[in-house]
Design a protein around this nucleic acid. Structure first.
Length: 419
DNA sequence: TCTGGGGTCCTAGGACCC
DNA sequence: TCTGGGGTCCTAGGACCC
């Protein structure tokens, strides 16, 4: 049996850990630049606030109902996620983190008749120990476990845990479950299925496997099998990320090349830091920037440039110099760049680097310098030391008006919270 | 005026090989 | 006029996830 633990309204719940006065009130967390709603409390959902809606579109409702808004605070969410995950991880022989707020874990070491009570205790422990409410779904496949967790979340009577164990339970659960809410069925697949007269997960499960395969190909067939209770989807905990991205939408469009260069340098440094943290190197750097796709009154422009390095590296100076070279080649004067990003690709373990016979770099020296820079940043905080190319400050290009404090990751705040 | 960010997997089609 | 067949590898784009 699989268990799926899912944190309820995760980002909002994180904010509430340090603001218990917000229990029972409508709360939302916003995306970058305070643009869209990305997490909602149950009260906010009850007001009809939809996932992903731009804040400006619901401004009157927010003001009238006193909805509390937070800018996203990923340092906080990441830290609380680690606490939840480590509490679960230590209880189970098999554990796979799926996202910042979800994990699958095995409960086969618990006798079947005790599995539900066991998970109920886990829900209470995490609420008490970390302050985050979670829901757990139990079933023989990951997709069914996801279905079960949705029921656990929706109906308080389950006390946070729902299991799909018998075929009768499976049929009942799937019959009341909209097809578009099934894990793996997105917008396109949903439209196709509805056209074929399928409305619920059970409607889909009752069709043949050939039907699923023909209409939705391999991923659709796997979802179909999972709905029968077969365990076919493998969530691999990849040892390394295959691509690393940093991208931002700016509060106001950037036209000045210098400003854009500073941002690209920062994105690149951020990616490279993650690259080094997983002890890997990248052979390709992809740089892009584009105008706002929502603007119909200006000419759209999409800048993109892919650079392949002679030798894979994780060195900031080197990666940034290639990224800026790419940007300079593709930059168009006068374009109003609203969003930009850097992607590191062709990632491999640092031990697998193939040296270039004609390489003139003193790589050992570069690496010592990079280590020293990382060390300074670890000790003295983010941006304590940066390259000259990274001089741009975040305040000038982003908007975060509602950011909560770094309750758990900034030492001064930790002391403040504890006192 | 204002509209997020970071990933993975699959597939079709092209290039290339014999 | 009529122009093979089978394989691999790579890439771009689509779909999906949270």
């Amino acid at each position: 049996m699989y268990a799926l633990a899912d944190c309820n309204n995760f980002f909002v719940s994180c904010e509430r850990v340090f603001r218990p006065d917000l229990e029972g009130r409508p709360v939302v967390v916003l995306s970058g630049n305070d643009g869209c709603v990305v997490s909602r409390s149950n009260e906010a959902k009850a007001l009809g606030i939809k996932m992903g809606v731009p804040l400006y579109q619901i401004r009157p409702l927010v003001d009238r109902e006193g909805v509390v808004c937070f800018s996203s605070n990923f340092a906080l969410y990441g830290d609380l996620s680690d606490r939840v995950m480590s509490l679960i991880r230590r209880q189970t022989p098999r554990f796979e983190q799926y996202s910042i707020d979800e994990c699958f874990f095995s409960i086969d070491h618990i006798p079947p008749e005790q599995q539900k009570t066991y998970c109920e205790q886990l829900v209470r422990d995490i609420r008490k120990g970390v302050g985050i409410p979670i829901s757990i779904g139990i079933a023989t496949s990951k997709t069914l476990a996801k279905v079960a967790s949705k029921y656990a979340k929706k109906y308080p009577g389950y006390r946070g845990v729902c299991e799909i164990r018998t075929d009768e339970q499976r049929r009942k659960a799937l019959s009341a479950f909209e097809i578009g809410d099934v894990w793996g069925i997105g917008r396109k697949a949903r439209a196709k299925l509805e056209k074929a007269g399928i409305r619920t997960a059970m409607d889909f499960a009752e069709r043949s496997s050939t039907f699923a395969k023909n209409l939705l190909h391999k991923p659709g067939l796997m979802t179909w099998q999972e709905l029968q209770g077969q365990d076919v989807i493998d969530i691999r905990d990849l040892p390394m990320k295959q691509t690393i991205t940093t991208s931002r939408t700016f509060a106001h469009a950037i036209t000045e090349r210098q400003l854009l260069e500073e941002q690209i340098a920062n994105f690149c440094a951020h990616c490279a830091r993650q690259l080094r943290m997983q002890k890997s190197v990248a052979k390709q750097v992809y740089v892009y920037a584009h105008t706002s796709s929502f603007r119909t009154d200006i000419e759209q422009h999409y800048l993109q440039e892919l650079v392949t390095l002679p030798v894979a590296t994780a060195n900031n100076q080197e990666l940034i110099s290639y990224a800026l070279g790419a940007l300079r080649r593709a930059y168009r004067p006068g374009a109003q760049y609203k969003k930009a990003g850097v992607v590191l690709m062709k990632i491999m373990p640092e031990a697998a680097v193939v040296p270039d016979m004609f390489d003139t770099h003193d790589r050992a020296r570069d690496q010592r310098l990079q280590r020293a820079l990382d060390h300074i940043e670890d000790r003295h905080g983010k941006r304590a030391i940066v390259l000259g190319a990274q001089t741009g400050t975040e305040e000038t290009v982003y908007k975060t008006e509602h950011k909560s404090r770094l309750y758990t990751t900034d030492l001064r705040e930790v002391i403040r919270v504890k006192s």
